[in-house]
Design a binder for these strands. Structure first.
Length: 224
DNA sequence: GCATTAACAGCCG
DNA sequence: CGGCTGTTAATGC
C-alpha cells in the first residue's frame, strides 16, 4: 500500500484515473529494493505483478544458448512494464537485471486486472503503451541489418527517453558509460568512443555521470 | 585486425 | 576522497 500522492509521483498514468481507481491502485502496490547485480525476475518465472521502476536502471534481456548476454532494452525510472506477462498469465520471456541499486513498485495482478476491466483511462494508457512498443519492435525488424556500435548505442539511448513510455524523462539521462556499455553490449571503452561519435554529430552532449540528448529522432535513426 | 581488458592520470562533485 | 572519464598499452579471439 502506498499513498496517492506518492502514486502520482511514480506513475505518470495515475493522474488520469478517477479517485476511486487511484485508491484501488494504491492498495494493490508495494515496493521493493534490488541490489546492484541482482535479478528482478528471470526468464521463465511466473510473475504475480505488473511493475514500475521508481529509481535505478534495469536491463531487459536474455542469455543465448551460447551463453552470450543479449540486451533487448534498457528500462529507466518512470517506466512500467510486464503487462504482457500479467495479461496473458504466461511466463516471462526475458530476464530483468538491476544494473545498479533499484527501487521497484509492484502492482498485484488482481489490481491490474481490475483496472483493466473497469478503468477507461487505464485502458487508454495501455493501448498507447502497446502501440509504442509495437513501433519499437517494428523498427527493430526493419533494421535487421547489423548496426555498428554507435548506432546500436544511439538506439538504446533513444529508447530510454521514449516520451510515450516515459513522459517524465526529459532530455537528460543519469547513466554512466559503463552502464551504457552494459546496455549496448559494449565495453566501457567502446561505449566511450561511440558516445564521442554521437557527440561530434551534435546528437548528444556528454556530461559527468550522464548524457544530455539534443536530437532524439536523430538518435533513433542514426546509422554509421 | 579488431574488440575487449587492464591500467592510469586527470577531473568532477 | 571516491567515482567517472578519456586514453594508451597489453591481451585474446
Amino acid at each position: 500500500m502506498i499513498s496517492e500522492d506518492y502514486l502520482v509521483k511514480i506513475a505518470f498514468w495515475a493522474s488520469d484515473l478517477t479517485a476511486d481507481e487511484r485508491a484501488r491502485a494504491c492498495k494493490g502496490i508495494t515496493e521493493k529494493t534490488l541490489t546492484k547485480g541482482s535479478y528482478l525476475c528471470h526468464r521463465g518465472d511466473r510473475v504475480e505483478y505488473w511493475m514500475g521502476l521508481v529509481s535505478g536502471l534495469l536491463r531487459l534481456g536474455t542469455v543465448t544458448n551460447m551463453g552470450k548476454a543479449v540486451t533487448m532494452a534498457g528500462l529507466p525510472p518512470g517506466e512500467w512494464f510486464g503487462e504482457g506477462s500479467v495479461l496473458k498469465n504466461e511466463p516471462r520471456r526475458y530476464d530483468l537485471l538491476a544494473l545498479r541499486e533499484c527501487r521497484v513498485a509492484l502492482m498485484q495482478r488482481v489490481t491490474f486486472l481490475w483496472l483493466f476491466e473497469n478503468s477507461v483511462a487505464f485502458n487508454r494508457f495501455l493501448v498507447r503503451q502497446f502501440n509504442e512498443r509495437l513501433g519499437q519492435f517494428i523498427g527493430l525488424v526493419e533494421n535487421d541489418r547489423a548496426l555498428e556500435a554507435p548506432a546500436r548505442l544511439a538506439r538504446g539511448i533513444a529508447w530510454l527517453l521514449n516520451p510515450v513510455l516515459n513522459p517524465g524523462a526529459g532530455d537528460y539521462l543519469a547513466i554512466n558509460q559503463e552502464e551504457i556499455g552494459l546496455l549496448s553490449g559494449l565495453s566501457r571503452q567502446a561505449a566511450n568512443r561511440a558516445l564521442q561519435v554521437l557527440e561530434k554529430r551534435g546528437l548528444i552532449t556528454i556530461e559527468h555521470g550522464g548524457i544530455r540528448v539534443r536530437d532524439r529522432d536523430g538518435l533513433q535513426t542514426f546509422e554509421d
